[in-house]
């Protein structure tokens, strides 16, 4: 859609495929905010955008790869991390950003996630957690809070949700943070740090899904945002074991883990290519 003559284009239009905007995300959906924070951080971090790739899987947030005006890959369901891993190993110069949802990264792609974190591949993973499978009609997901209503759990979810930062930490991620879409400024700071971080970085973003999750739990879009405002506690460096999502107790946000350990490529070169390192050929 052409911007009206009165206005200059939006500051992010150079990173967007403007012909595809407006995007398909519902009114009030948090993915758009996370996506725009991601683009702003990519711009402000000063990384070489010609060598930046965005990879996403399937689901609402999987559409992100289709809207960014960079090299991008919309992969098969749950396989965003394997594609990203291959890309990074084949061309270590690339900055690879994985932008995907909770269902894609932690349900069907859960195994890929733990192994990418274990190997410490240099990726930036932004996970939009909207607590349900939004695109398919709001079914219960691995991240749906206890007793929350979804299409398939009309009496309330009987299972406990994943504690994603704990999972990422336990699997070996070197940077772990959690924010909500309302904390967009802190989120941009975190994504920027994660982009410049050498190692596997994981950022969970809580996002409202007003049409599927919100409607069944009596949470309008502004109610969800007020919940994020009133029932969240910012506690940087909190222990990952206390990060369960329970809005009645309060949800802890912040940057939890920022450590250094050898990346996959470094360890591989040291173990399998000692000769090349000695001769200064390997990266």
């Amino acid at each position: 859609m052409e911007p009206s003559a009165r206005h200059m284009p939006h500051p992010l239009d150079d990173l967007l495929r403007v012909d595809r905007i407006p995007h398909i995300w519902c009114p009030g959906c948090g993915i758009g905010t996370v996506f725009s924070s991601c683009l702003t951080s990519m711009k402000s971090s000063g990384i070489d955008l010609a060598k930046t790739v965005m990879v996403s899987g399937i689901g609402c947030s999987g559409r992100g790869a289709g809207y960014v005006n960079l090299d991008s890959y919309h992969t098969t369901h749950g396989r965003a991390l394997p594609f990203a891993t291959g890309m990074k190993l084949a061309n270590p110069e690339l900055n690879v950003v994985v932008f995907s949802g909770d269902g894609d990264l932690f349900a069907i792609g859960g195994n890929h996630f733990i192994h990418a974190a274990r190997r410490n591949i240099e990726l930036t993973v932004v996970c939009v957690n909207n607590f349900n499978y939004g695109m398919t009609g709001g079914q219960v997901a691995a991240t749906t809070p206890f007793l929350a209503k979804t299409t398939t759990t009309s009496l309330g979810n009987p299972d406990s949700p994943f504690n994603l930062p704990l999972l990422a930490f336990a699997a070996g991620a070197t940077y772990v943070a959690r924010w909500t879409v309302l904390h967009a400024r802190e989120l941009m700071g975190s994504i920027q740090e994660a982009l410049l971080k050498k190692g596997f970085s994981f950022i969970e973003v809580l996002a409202p899904c007003p049409v599927n999750y919100g409607r069944r739990n009596k949470l309008s879009l502004l109610d969800t945002m007020r919940l994020y405002q009133q029932k969240t506690i910012i506690k940087n460096g909190a222990s990952p074991t206390e990060l369960d999502i329970d809005f009645s107790r309060g949800v802890v946000l912040g940057k939890f883990i920022d450590i250094q350990r050898p990346t996959c490529i470094e360890s591989y070169d040291r173990t399998c290519r000692p000769q090349e390192i000695a001769e200064g050929k390997a990266a």
Binding site: W25, T33, F35, T40, L182
Partner: peptide
């Protein structure tokens, strides 16, 4: 803040 919270680039 309106610019960064807007999901629509609007």
């Amino acid at each position: 803040f309106c610019e960064i919270i807007c999901p629509e680039f609007a």
